[in-house]
Design a protein around this nucleic acid. Structure first.
Length: 225
DNA sequence: TAGGCCATCTGGTCCT
DNA sequence: AGGACCAGATGGCCTA
């Protein structure tokens, strides 16, 4: 782990996460929210895909699933124009390769693109279940911030569970078995960990102020204090 | 304008 | 052999 990551890790300390969690309660834990059907495509067409959409139009292939084979026909020049591709910096560039290698390379590129998109989808899923302010005024968590926040969230959940177990054990001491354990103290489930039923999300600025530790994690905050 | 974040391409390595 | 995974390089976009 490099120094930058360590700083980020400190920035997303357990205390900070506890604060966030207690502040936002369960409302921030919209499991699956915003990650289902109907959400706009997050990946604008790459030059390759852009080209393909034109190609498929020309070639009478209507709206089928995007496969790696589809990408085999994409136009190198269009990619070079708008995707930062530069033959000068890539001496072994695609255009100079035989058609067979070129087609193989394109298929590999398409697979890699899909793989990264899957990875990003998974990160979006993670963002959806960790407590931070999901609002239009708050920029999406960066990848590294998502991972670090998720890690601390897991640690916090484990800690909360352990404390809850201790509490239940303590309450059961000297009490008759007949008295039922309140559901709010159930050792499992969100109710035990999130007794707060927060409804409205606080602004990012409030969140940042509450956390007390302005950090690089909250650079996404666009709210004015 | 510098720095952060990101998408993409690419070649290498490992696995099935 | 083909696919998955990875890390480096590069350029675009956005923000302070």
């Amino acid at each position: 782990m490099n120094a930058r990551d360590e700083n980020l890790l400190k920035a997303i300390s357990n205390d900070t996460l506890l604060d966030l969690t207690q502040r936002y309660g369960q409302s921030a834990l919209s499991f699956g929210a915003g990650h289902g059907a109907g959400s706009p495509a997050r990946y604008p067409l790459t030059p390759a895909a852009d080209f393909l959409s034109n190609q498929t139009g020309k070639s009478n292939e209507s709206g089928g699933e995007h496969t790696s084979d589809d990408d085999d026909g994409f136009d190198l020049d269009s990619r070079k124009r708008s995707s930062g591709f530069d033959d000068d910096k890539h001496p072994g560039a695609l255009a100079k390769k035989p058609k067979e290698q070129r087609s193989l390379r394109l298929s590999i590129n398409a697979r890699e693109r899909r793989r990264m998109h899957d990875l990003n989808d998974a990160l979006d899923g993670l963002r959806a279940v960790i407590p931070y302010a999901h609002s239009p005024s708050v920029r999406k968590l960066s990848k590294i911030a998502t991972l670090l926040l998720a890690k601390n969230y897991i640690l916090m959940q484990a800690q909360a569970l352990e404390e809850m177990r201790r509490l239940v054990a303590y309450l059961n001491q000297g009490q008759t078995i007949s008295s039922p354990i309140p559901t709010a103290l159930a050792p499992f489930g969100q109710a035990a960990v999130y007794p707060f039923s927060g409804t409205a999300l606080a602004t990012c600025a409030e969140k940042c102020a509450y956390s007390g530790t302005p950090s690089s994690l909250f650079k996404h905050c666009n709210d004015k204090p």
